[in-house]
C-alpha cells in the first residue's frame, strides 16, 4: 500500500466513516425499496442538521477539555426567543441575530463559570442546563409559541422538483468546514487542542488559557444558537420543552467521531460523521419497523464499539 494511502487511513475520521458506510449498506440491503430512495437520503440529512451544528460546538468544547450539557436547553430557549421576536414583528434576520447573540452569551456564561469560579465544566453546564431550560419555560409561559415563520421555515424545507436539499444542510456543512479550519489551521484552534491535551503545558508555553476557554465556550454557544434557529425552522414554533437530551446526542457524535472526553482529541469531520451515523441507525430501524427500544440499544452498542475501535487505533499509532 502506498504511503499516502496509509497516512490517509490514519485519519481519525476514517473509522467512523467506514462504520457509517457499513451501517448504511446494511440497512440498504435489508430494506432496498425504501431506504435507498433519494428522498430518504435527504430526509436523513435534514434530520441531522440540528444535531450536527450543535455537535460541532460540542466538538470544539470537548477537544479543548470541557463539556457542555446545556446545549439542549440552549436550543429550546433559542426557538422560544426566535418565536417571540417574530411574534413581536421583527424580521427574520434580527431574530436570527438575537438568537445567535443569546447562544453566544449562554456559552460565555458557561465559560465564565468554568474559568472564573473554577467549577468543573460538567457541573457548571449542568447548572446552566437547568437554568436555561427554566428561562425558556418562563419566557414561553410553559407553552408552545406560535409565530409567523417569516421565511425561516424555508431553510429546512424540501420542495420536490425544485429544491431537494434544504439550505440548512448546506449551512451545517459550511459550519463544519469553518469549524474544521478553525480547529486545524488557526492559532485559536491549535491552542484549544493544546489546552485539551495538557493544560499545564499550554500554560507553560504562553498559551492564554483563560481566553481560549472563554472563546471556545462562546463559540459552542453560538453554534447552539444557530442550531436553535434551524430547530425553529423545522418546528415553526417556539417550544421550551424541545431538544431534551440533545446534549447527549452531541457528545455521542463527538465521541463516535474519535473525540476523547479527556480532551485533546477529536475532529469536526468525525463529529459530523458521528451525527449522521446516529441518524442512519434511527432511520434504518424505523424503516425496518423496529421499536424504539431496539434503536436505543443499537445506538448504545455503536458508541461502545466506536470507542473500542478508537482505543485499538490509538494503540496501533503509538
Amino acid at each position: 500500500m502506498s504511503l499516502a494511502l496509509m497516512n490517509w487511513l490514519k485519519k481519525p475520521w476514517v473509522g467512523p466513516l467506514v462504520a457509517l458506510l457499513g451501517v448504511y449498506a446494511l440497512f440498504s440491503a435489508l430494506t432496498p425499496d425504501t431506504f435507498l430512495r433519494t428522498l430518504n437520503l435527504v430526509t436523513m440529512l435534514r434530520q441531522t442538521v440540528v444535531v450536527a451544528i450543535a455537535a460541532i460546538g460540542a466538538a470544539l468544547i470537548i477537544i479543548h477539555g470541557g463539556i457542555d450539557l446545556s446545549v439542549g436547553s440552549s436550543v429550546a430557549l433559542t426557538t422560544v426567543v426566535v418565536a417571540k421576536c417574530l411574534q413581536a414583528g421583527m424580521g427574520p434576520i434580527p431574530a436570527l441575530v438575537a438568537a445567535l447573540a443569546l447562544g453566544a452569551l449562554a456559552g460565555l456564561v458557561n465559560g465564565a463559570l468554568v474559568v472564573g469560579l473554577r467549577i468543573t465544566p460538567f457541573i457548571a453546564t449542568l447548572g446552566t442546563m437547568s437554568a436555561l431550560r427554566g428561562i425558556a419555560k418562563g419566557l414561553a409561559d410553559e407553552q408552545k409559541i406560535d409565530a409567523p415563520a417569516a421565511g425561516l421555515d424555508a431553510w429546512m424545507a424540501v420542495i420536490p422538483g425544485e429544491r431537494l436539499v434544504p439550505y440548512g444542510v448546506w449551512l451545517a456543512l459550511a459550519a463544519g468546514v469553518v469549524g474544521a479550519v478553525l480547529l486545524g489551521y488557526t492559532r485559536l484552534g491549535r491552542h484549544a487542542v493544546a489546552v485539551g491535551s495538557n493544560e499545564l503545558t499550554a500554560r507553560l508555553c504562553g498559551v492564554p488559557v483563560t481566553r481560549v476557554r472563554l472563546t471556545i465556550y462562546a463559540l459552542g454557544g453560538l453554534l447552539a444558537g444557530l442550531a436553535g434557529v434551524l430547530e425553529f425552522s423545522t418546528l415553526t414554533v417556539g417550544d421550551p420543552t424541545d431538544s431534551v437530551g440533545l446534549e447527549l446526542e452531541t457528545i455521542a457524535a463527538v465521541v463516535i467521531g474519535g473525540g476523547s472526553l479527556a480532551g485533546g482529541q477529536g475532529s469536526v469531520a468525525g463529529t459530523l460523521i458521528g451525527a449522521l451515523l446516529l441518524t442512519v441507525i434511527k432511520a434504518g430501524c424505523t424503516h425496518l419497523g423496529m421499536p424504539n427500544w431496539i434503536q436505543e440499544i443499537l445506538t448504545g452498542g455503536i458508541i461502545v464499539i466506536a470507542m473500542t475501535l478508537d482505543r485499538l487505533r490509538q494503540a496501533a499509532r503509538d
Binding site: 491549535r190 487542542v193 493544546a194 491535551s197 495538557n198 503545558t201 499550554a202 508555553c205 504562553g206 498559551v207 485533546g264 482529541q265
Partner: peptide, 14 residues
C-alpha cells in the same frame, strides 16, 4: 510536553 500530541505539534506549541 503534551504527550498525546505529535512532535511537530509540541515544537510549534509556543
Amino acid at each position: 510536553l503534551a504527550e498525546s500530541l505529535s512532535i511537530a505539534e509540541n515544537i510549534s506549541l509556543s
